[in-house]
């Protein structure tokens, strides 16, 4: 998106691009709904997570910990750790969105990977008109669709009965991998991922469910800080941008 110059970007392009990302992302709310009910939550709990947490990886993580038999509080901690990146997206967005008062309170809910990437991808020499448009359209189209598709997926998942028959237990790992994949852009990230997976695996027989994920994550981040880093490892919104670039 960064190669698009201000003069060649039209309002229509911004609208089409934002809604395109919104529809593509919102649609996979159906997989969250199905996996959440497969993990043992009911339809309303799945919908509450999508409405309130509204951050894909955090929600999948919560469901994953519950599915593994972990305590809901381990799920909440894992979910919150994953949601911490949204604070950094907000930091990057704040000087370009200029949100004040109730508008900030409302729009804060849609500060996520995709809305950040779309907003920061707009040229910044037009008084931020396109930045704000891309942020709102992407964020809110995802919000509406994601919640609707969660409900549909949850109802379908509940109707299916034993999730193992349909391989839904395997789909959780695939969902995490699909979320991780675009972040494995360089060796430091790949090493951190391998360490996280290895430590968590080693801890499964030794600790209660939910703990291996949190400890594995913490150890991997700690080790990662000692790895000489590539420039892109420090730029969270750019990573989200790469996700869109695929």
């Amino acid at each position: 998106m960064s190669t698009v110059t201000a003069s060649s970007t039209s309002r229509r392009e911004v609208v089409v691009d934002s809604l395109g990302v919104g529809i593509a992302t919102g649609a996979y709310g159906v997989s969250f709904g199905a996996l959440a009910t497969a993990s043992g939550m009911d339809v309303w709990q799945a919908c509450a997570l999508s409405l309130l947490v509204f951050s894909g990886a955090s929600q999948f993580a919560f469901a994953g910990v519950i599915a593994a038999g972990g305590s809901p509080w381990a799920g909440a901690l894992t979910s919150t750790l994953l949601a911490s990146r949204n604070a950094f997206y907000g930091l990057a967005l704040a000087p370009r969105l200029h949100l004040r008062g109730w508008r900030r309170l409302v729009h804060a809910q849609v500060v996520i990977d995709e809305s950040t990437a779309m907003a920061l991808g707009q040229p910044d020499d037009d008084g931020e008109r396109f930045t704000r448009l891309a942020f709102r359209l992407t964020g809110w189209s995802i919000f509406v669709l994601w919640n609707l598709m969660t409900l549909i997926g949850a109802l379908a998942g509940q109707a299916m009965g034993d999730p193992r028959t349909f391989g839904l237990d395997a789909a959780v790992g695939a969902a995490f991998l699909a979320l991780l994949w675009p972040r494995l852009t360089a060796w430091p990230q790949r090493i951190v991922a391998l360490i996280g997976a290895a430590v968590a695996t080693g801890l499964v027989p030794l600790s209660p469910a939910g703990v291996p994920v949190i400890l594995g994550g913490v150890v991997a981040v700690a080790v990662g800080l000692f790895i000489p880093h590539a420039a892109d490892a420090t730029d969270a919104p750019a990573e989200a941008g790469q996700r869109e670039a695929r």
Binding site: A57, A87, F176, L179, L194, A197, P212, L225, A236
Partner: peptide
């Protein structure tokens, strides 16, 4: 900023491992 960028990578990888290989404590 660095920690924030590493957290999703580390946690998602740990989640994959537990989700795919774990069965209770086995």
């Amino acid at each position: 900023t660095r920690v924030a960028a590493l957290i999703p990578v580390a946690l998602l990888a740990a989640l994959i491992a537990v989700q795919v290989l774990g069965e209770g404590r086995a």
